[in-house]
Design a protein around this nucleic acid. Structure first.
Lengths: 234, 234
DNA sequence: GCGCGCGCTTGATTCACATCAAGTCCACGG
DNA sequence: CCGTGGACTTGATGTGAATCAAGCGCGCGC
């Protein structure tokens, strides 16, 4: 584990507040590994041995049922994933694969669990992280139930831009088919939704996304898209 | 707080392992209150002051957007709710209302957070609880994306029966419209789905639900309902 | 025990999105 | 350069669920 990685990991919300002793212990058994694109890191149903921390690249969390797969989340650098499975010592309920070349830090689950009992700050950080993830997922569920396809795309663009610094422009790090799966739609409909957003303050060309009118875009999300005038029953 | 309530709460996974000292502290500031049906307990966006523990009755967790509401979960007796908001000190991201007369225990959020730092066992229990809730929600999201309306109903019936002891029969504690909202469908379609399930091992009459053929029901969930023969692309 | 109202069911229609089916664009190797 | 293939787009059609619109039945109060 490089010193630079070590420092970066130390900055993570999950580890920022833990004691030096705990952090050293966690690093002790940890290892960093590089992976090429499109490698399966975790398979749904297996038991977790390591907490994963993504240092570089991007990772897709998904679940397969019959021949269909659905994407439950994307992980960006400097974030841990599958913490819930590690914390509850239960089988993974989603799979994970690399979407780009990645570097990943593995922290032995046993070490983490052992440290939890000793280090209240670590426990607190884990609680915060789990709560944040819970809320993220609740947001996804609400979005999926209450919003149309173009609205979900609009929401994702706004949220992603925010997360990436709010420059109003960014670049997809992965294929559009993955984004479609994340947003719970087909690639065909993602394409059509992109066209719709052209009238609502977003310019998409290839993998480049530019927000040209944030107000207009927000408005699309707030009121019901084309059904803006009609009121619906409770 | 009645001694019987106190004992019951002590049995909860969330509190079973905490130290006596912590438990006493938590009970100190706690209070039990009774509510009639259809009372709003928590409003989305407010800041959490208390962790809620449902002692009796049933509670609906929901979110409103425009004039539509979507149900994110139901709480049955002897379970805590809104733990994620309390743990992360962030605004509620769902509202809660009683569906039946309820008795609810309120534990001051500040007390709980203070105890977290002191009591590793409590922290561990909170972690387990949050992880379990996370997984529950992930399951809901998967169900909503990958299953048809009749399948979601079938899945809910099986899960609920399981949770209630697996007797193969139980009774709805609330209106069907609430169930429809929980399963992300309209009351009309819940009704139609009930008819469909008649051919798949479930007998529903009024609020009584009986599983007559668990194998058949499971099979409906496993293969794609009526689209059982066709294979679809990944 | 008789009407009244509400929750639920049933049927007709509409709508959003999925599916199916060709394209088009572009990156890559020859 | 030109050809090939995979990702994406565009268009036509299909379908599951929502919406709209009546009916039905059951519990409740008088």
């Amino acid at each position: 584990m490089r010193p630079s990685d070590r420092d970066a990991v130390r900055q993570l919300p999950l580890f920022a507040r833990v004691g030096d002793e705990s952090f050293a212990a966690l690093c002790q058994g940890a290892l960093v590994q590089a992976f090429p694109s499109h490698v399966e890191l975790v398979r749904e149903g297996d038991l977790p041995d390591f907490l994963h921390v993504l240092l570089d690249g991007s990772v897709q969390l998904f679940s397969v049922r019959h021949e269909r797969e659905t994407t439950l989340g994307l992980v960006r650098p400097m974030a841990s994933f599958i913490l819930a499975a590690v914390a509850s010592e239960a089988p993974y309920l989603m799979s994970a694969r690399t979407l780009t070349p990645c570097r990943i830090l593995f922290i032995p689950a046993a070490t983490l669990r052992a440290r939890l009992a000793e280090d209240a700050a670590l426990a607190g950080a884990v609680i915060d992280e789990l709560a944040a993830r819970y809320r993220e997922l609740a947001g996804e569920l609400k979005a999926h139930r209450q919003r149309t396809v173009p609205q979900r795309l609009a929401q994702w663009i706004l949220a992603t831009d925010e997360q990436l610094g709010g420059a109003g422009r960014f670049r997809l790090a992965f294929e559009k088919r993955v984004l479609a799966s994340l947003l719970g739609m087909t690639p065909e409909n993602l394409s059509r939704a992109s066209i719709t957003l052209g009238d609502h303050g977003v310019r998409i060309s290839g993998r480049d996304i530019r927000i040209t009118n944030k107000g207009l875009l927000t408005q699309l999300i707030e009121n019901g898209g084309r059904a803006s005038t009609r009121t619906r029953r409770a």
